[in-house]
Lab assay of single mutants.
Amino acid sequence: SLEELLKLARHALRHGEEIHVLDRVITDEHEIKRLIEELERLI
């Protein structure tokens, strides 16, 4: 769900981890922040 993805993204950002989204691995902090902003808009 989007909520789950948002939780994962926030966790990854906090802990400096990578996040796997739709067969992509996002490691860049700015990309993760952008993902979080997009998800928050959708929810």
Score class of each variant (00 low, 15 high):
residue 1 S to Y: 14
residue 1 S to D: 13
residue 1 S to R: 11
residue 2 L to E: 03
residue 2 L to Q: 04
residue 2 L to M: 09
residue 3 E to D: 09
residue 3 E to C: 06
residue 4 E to S: 08
residue 5 L to P: 00
residue 5 L to A: 05
residue 5 L to D: 01
residue 5 L to Q: 05
residue 5 L to R: 05
residue 6 L to P: 00
residue 6 L to W: 01
residue 6 L to Y: 02
residue 7 K to C: 05
residue 7 K to R: 13
residue 7 K to I: 11
residue 7 K to F: 08
residue 8 L to I: 10
residue 8 L to D: 10
residue 8 L to W: 05
residue 8 L to R: 14
residue 8 L to P: 00
residue 8 L to K: 15
residue 8 L to C: 03
residue 8 L to M: 11
residue 9 A to G: 02
residue 9 A to F: 09
residue 9 A to P: 00
residue 9 A to S: 03
residue 9 A to Q: 01
residue 9 A to E: 00
residue 10 R to M: 11
residue 10 R to Y: 14
residue 10 R to C: 05
residue 10 R to S: 07
residue 10 R to D: 12
residue 11 H to S: 08
residue 11 H to T: 08
residue 11 H to W: 05
residue 11 H to C: 06
residue 11 H to V: 06
residue 11 H to G: 08
residue 12 A to F: 02
residue 12 A to Q: 04
residue 13 L to P: 01
residue 13 L to M: 07
residue 13 L to E: 06
residue 14 R to Q: 15
residue 14 R to H: 15
residue 14 R to V: 15
residue 14 R to T: 15
residue 15 H to C: 05
residue 15 H to R: 07
residue 15 H to N: 14
residue 16 G to T: 04
residue 16 G to V: 03
residue 16 G to L: 06
residue 16 G to C: 04
residue 16 G to Q: 08
residue 17 E to F: 12
residue 17 E to I: 14
residue 17 E to C: 06
residue 17 E to A: 09
residue 18 E to Y: 07
residue 18 E to H: 12
residue 18 E to M: 10
residue 18 E to G: 14
residue 19 I to Y: 05
residue 19 I to P: 01
residue 19 I to V: 13
residue 20 H to D: 05
residue 20 H to R: 14
residue 20 H to L: 10
residue 20 H to M: 12
residue 21 V to I: 14
residue 22 L to G: 15
residue 22 L to R: 14
residue 22 L to E: 12
residue 22 L to N: 15
residue 22 L to Y: 08
residue 23 D to N: 08
residue 23 D to Y: 00
residue 24 R to W: 08
residue 24 R to E: 06
residue 24 R to D: 05
residue 24 R to S: 07
residue 24 R to M: 10
residue 24 R to V: 09
residue 25 V to I: 14
residue 25 V to R: 04
residue 25 V to C: 03
residue 25 V to K: 07
residue 26 I to N: 01
residue 26 I to Y: 15
residue 26 I to S: 02
residue 26 I to F: 13
residue 27 T to N: 11
residue 27 T to A: 11
residue 27 T to C: 04
residue 27 T to L: 06
residue 28 D to N: 11
residue 29 E to F: 13
residue 30 H to E: 14
residue 31 E to I: 07
residue 31 E to W: 05
residue 31 E to C: 04
residue 31 E to S: 09
residue 31 E to K: 06
residue 32 I to T: 02
residue 32 I to N: 00
residue 33 K to G: 07
residue 33 K to T: 09
residue 33 K to Y: 09
residue 33 K to D: 04
residue 33 K to H: 09
residue 33 K to Q: 11
residue 33 K to I: 14
residue 33 K to V: 13
residue 34 R to W: 11
residue 34 R to Q: 15
residue 34 R to E: 14
residue 35 L to F: 12
residue 35 L to Q: 01
residue 35 L to W: 12
residue 36 I to R: 00
residue 36 I to K: 01
residue 36 I to G: 00
residue 36 I to T: 02
residue 36 I to A: 01
residue 37 E to I: 14
residue 37 E to Q: 13
residue 37 E to K: 11
residue 37 E to G: 10
residue 38 E to F: 14
residue 38 E to A: 13
residue 38 E to V: 15
residue 38 E to Q: 15
residue 39 L to N: 00
residue 39 L to H: 00
residue 39 L to W: 06
residue 39 L to T: 03
residue 40 E to L: 07
residue 40 E to N: 04
residue 40 E to K: 06
residue 41 R to S: 08
residue 41 R to T: 09
residue 41 R to C: 04
residue 41 R to P: 01
residue 41 R to K: 12
residue 42 L to N: 05
residue 42 L to E: 06
residue 42 L to G: 04
residue 43 I to L: 11
residue 43 I to D: 01
residue 43 I to E: 01
residue 43 I to G: 02
